[in-house]
Design a protein around this nucleic acid. Structure first.
Lengths: 254, 254
DNA sequence: AATGAGCATTGCAAATAGTGCAACATACCT
DNA sequence: AGGTATGTTGCACTATTTGCAATGCTCATT
């Protein structure tokens, strides 16, 4: 909607790929160097872009601070965290919390596995939306129309042979998930990693977040992991209760 | 330098304070609502801003992803991490890694204490620049002129009675730190917390990062913490060696 | 139900603010 | 020294953004 801002913001993902010099930025944006320079200067003024000693630009410090603050203002996260920790202490595996936003699903919290073999993931990283158990739960809750629209627009990369191959299969899976109220990812993203997930619901019953337990085959088989499902669901329900204000929060006066 | 972009970017810190509706954003920016709307729409288009169900705006998901990517492209962090972990395993206390950027110092990595009493800090959070041990090291390395300029511009909040009170005291402290090659913060930020820190240097000898070990009084006294100094310095030196390419990296072929 | 207040949204004409050009400056390499 | 590649500035032009006023929308109140 605003050309100048649009161009300026396009610089950020570009720099996320790695540091770039003025010429490169101008080229990629398709604008004159002087234009790119002024945009970069403005971004720099706000700390979103940093100019390193070799004159090249990269993403700046303020970005971290902003992301931090944004994260802290997510109250589901705040409420869920202790539950995630407790669940991790009980079962020992990696626990994730994810939310949906504008067609992307991303992890907003994570408690690492106690086992030496850990799966790779990062808070803030968008998840493999077509296969992740948490993504299925979050998308399954969308209204019919929106769900179809999102599913059609997605790419369906075949991470493994068990990955969701296309929109039709995905929608079918979402219907199942919606029905049963929980989801799994059995080797759909990484051959040897399985997840079970359950939804966190707000006061109106809508899914506001999803949590999952993930573990590699070498630690527990898929069947063993599935025995944790009741526990995962109970934990998610506990978070839902607290989030929607139904359950008084333990250890908090007032 | 670019008014439109400048205004748009000013929205981000504003939203970091918490969700805001259109009117509020327009007011704070000092522009007409329609203008604010178009700016927000552009930000939204890039995922930096999200519109929640109650129509208010808050910071968006892409921000997390960008911050993550930026973080991952910092190679000091990559190299330092295993060293921080090892140091934490040895001494058990919280270990931090910080860098300096445009007058701000911020944590880029952290390994939490094994003790139940932990200090509060967050990766990405700007540190208390006038008192933190890592900040002293990073600023002490700046060229004379720049160091003075930065010191004069800072605020000197008295977090505790031991906080650095003013620019003169700060510059004196920086001179000492520069001389001795390590720094401490003994209750300057939080009454009961002490830190010892050492610098990580690049091939040219310039300080590129600083690391610290922090622990509350209730766990170890300041004197006991100081006995860790040689270990902290050795760790920092090991990182420096690897970062500047002098030391071949353990466990990596080629 | 109906009214109205409060907020978001759109089209439009005025002019401000952003653009690309070309010239200049600077660093680096041969 | 000369030349190339890159970053930087001043300026004239016009495309872009702006604020206004009018329109929709949603929700609370009577």
């Amino acid at each position: 909607m605003s050309q100048t801002v649009d161009r300026a913001l396009s610089i950020l993902p570009l720099l996320a790929e790695g540091p770039a010099d003025l010429g490169r930025v101008a080229d990629r944006l398709g604008v004159h160097k002087s234009t790119a320079l002024r945009l970069l200067r403005t971004l720099h003024g706000h700390g979103l872009v940093y100019r390193q000693s070799d004159q090249r630009y990269r993403l700046g410090a303020r970005l971290f601070a902003l992301a931090q603050e944004a994260m802290e203002s997510l109250d589901v996260r705040e409420i869920a965290h202790p539950h995630l920790v407790r669940l991790n202490e009980t079962c020992g595996h990696t626990v994730h919390l994810a939310v949906h936003e504008d067609g992307e699903v991303l992890y907003i919290d994570k408690v690492d596995s106690r086992y030496p073999v850990r799966m790779y993931s990062r808070i803030g990283k968008p998840v493999a939306i077509t296969v992740a158990a948490v993504a299925k739960l979050l998308l399954a809750d969308l209204p019919e129309g929106e769900r179809r629209a999102v599913a059609e627009k997605l790419d369906y990369p075949m991470y493994t042979v068990r990955s969701t191959p296309n929109a039709a299969a995905f929608l079918k899976e979402l219907a199942t998930v919606r029905e049963q109220g929980w989801a799994t990812d059995l080797g759909g993203h990484e051959e040897s990693i399985n997840c079970v997930a359950a939804p966190v619901r707000g006061a109106d019953g809508r899914v506001v977040a999803a949590m999952s337990v993930s573990a590699p085959n070498v630690v527990v088989t898929a069947d063993e992991l599935l025995t944790l499902l009741p526990l995962v669901r109970r934990t998610a329900d506990a978070i839902s209760g607290e989030y929607s204000g139904r359950t008084p929060v333990k250890g908090t006066a007032e």
